[in-house]
Nucleic acid binder design. Structure first.
Lengths: 95, 95
DNA sequence: CTGACATATGAAGGAATATTCATATGAAGT
DNA sequence: ACTTCATATGAATATTCCTTCATATGTCAG
């Protein structure tokens, strides 16, 4: 009756950095360094985050020369974030 | 450009106990003690969880005599969990 | 207003997750 | 093969979150 796996997926969306990565990838695919510069975060931090997102198939990657290009698996995430927007973040505490 | 509040909402869904509460409330509204018995968890634990869910308007409550009855704000949550089902938890590591 | 039941709250400890740093792996050009 | 740039990995620490316990608050009945 209970789904013990939901929370593993949502753990990714419960993390500001990962959400920011998702937000950027909504507009265009990007390689790791582009994300690092845009987010002003440590390279390894971004890499760890991408790895987690990739495990849950939230992002996918392809190699392009020396770079690895990440893009969003939009089919699940985009509708989900739209639902939240409708729900209104104003209900949530903290900024 | 980034929505800094998404993750506060999703933190609730990243927690097994809170997801289990949501699952139970999908079928019928319940008071705290009923949830405690059904989930076999500490009363204060359940109470803390309900408080967090309530802050994000995922559940709502009403007083009924000595009891407080919680019910699910289904408009956001149910479609969201359906999206995940479609996405297939099989992509996620760990059971 | 007292006692019994129902739920909430706060603070401390413990568990899980994130961040950091050092380093490893990989890809491409020379 | 060597160097450089790009990304990944692992382990230690830092931080955040969860759990627990003790107790407070609230509601009703008598």
């Amino acid at each position: 009756m209970k789904c013990p796996t939901y929370h593993i997926f949502f753990k990714n969306l419960a993390n500001p950095l990962k959400v920011n990565i998702i937000s950027l990838l909504k507009y265009k695919e990007m390689n790791v360094n582009e994300l690092v510069k845009e987010l002003k975060e440590e390279q390894s931090k971004v890499s760890h985050a991408l790895s987690a997102l990739n495990h849950c198939n939230i992002v996918v990657s392809r190699q392009s020369g020396k770079n690895k290009i990440y893009s969003l698996n939009k089919t699940t995430i985009v509708p989900m974030l739209k639902l939240i927007d409708k729900h209104k973040c104003k209900y949530c505490p903290g900024r």
